[in-house]
Amino acid sequence: MITLFKYDEDYNYVDGAGISIEEGEEIPEGYTDVRPPDGMYKRKFDPIKKVWYESATQEYIDSLQPLPSKPSDIELLGQTISTMKINTLKYNQKLITLEKEVSMLKSGGSS
């Protein structure tokens, strides 16, 4: 038995329409014994070269990709807390610097 793979009048692969024939039988019109490779989005057959190729545009392929998920409320809260911690550290550093400057001014010293 030989497995055949169907393509339509535009040579596009027809999923699930394959058939089997006995060895030695003639391959019917619209079928090939060349197995389409996995991993293609829109398989198209070239009957002259006897190969399948990708006919999907990059725009079509990109449209099939899942949209990035939005961060959850917990993730947003974590980001907010992280930002607040960073801002607090910066504020504390500025306070330390100001305290040193005030202390130096009070003591009459300069750097």
Rank of each mutant, 00 (worst) to 15 (best):
G30E: 14
K6N: 08
S20K: 11
M40F: 06
S111Q: 15
I48F: 11
P37R: 10
T3Q: 15
L98S: 03
M104Y: 09
T88G: 05
S110F: 08
T88A: 07
G16T: 13
G18M: 12
T88S: 04
K44I: 15
S107E: 10
V14R: 09
T80Q: 15
R43E: 03
R35W: 13
P36K: 05
Q65E: 00
I2D: 10
E59M: 03
T3F: 08
G39R: 09
D38S: 09
P68M: 00
P36Y: 04
I48H: 06
S103E: 05
T3A: 13
T80G: 09
Q93I: 01
P71D: 15
P36V: 04
P47Y: 03
E29K: 10
L105F: 08
M84Q: 10
F45G: 00
L67P: 00
D8G: 07
D38I: 05
D8N: 14
S103F: 02
Q79I: 06
L89W: 13
K50D: 09
E22Y: 06
Y13H: 06
S107A: 10
D33T: 02
P28N: 09
P71Y: 11
E26M: 07
Y60H: 11
M1V: 12
T80L: 14
G18F: 01
P68F: 00
K6W: 05
S55Y: 06
S69K: 01
G16Q: 11
M1Y: 08
I48S: 11
D33C: 04
G39H: 11
S63N: 07
K50F: 04
S55V: 10
M84H: 05
Q58R: 06
E29V: 06
E25D: 11
E101M: 01
T80W: 06
E9I: 13
G109D: 12
D33K: 02
V102E: 04
I74E: 14
D38K: 12
P28S: 14
Y91Q: 08
E29R: 12
G109N: 11
N12D: 13
S110K: 07
T80F: 08
K50N: 06
E75P: 08
L98D: 03
E25Q: 12
E101C: 01
K85T: 14
D33S: 07
P28F: 13
I74S: 08
G39N: 15
T83R: 11
S111C: 13
G39C: 13
E26C: 05
P68A: 00
M1H: 15
G16F: 11
Y11N: 15
V102K: 03
K50V: 04
Q79P: 04
S110W: 07
R43V: 02
Y31D: 03
I48E: 15
S82Y: 06
K90E: 13
R43I: 02
I86F: 05
K85L: 15
L105M: 11
G109V: 12
A56L: 03
K106V: 07
K70W: 05
A56N: 02
S107R: 09
E29P: 04
S110P: 01
E22I: 04
S111K: 14
D10P: 02
R43T: 03
F5P: 00
V34F: 04
K49M: 12
S69I: 01
I21A: 06
P28M: 13
S63T: 10
G24Q: 06
S103A: 03
R35T: 11
T83A: 09
K70L: 15
M40H: 12
P37K: 10
E99M: 03
Y60V: 09
K44R: 15
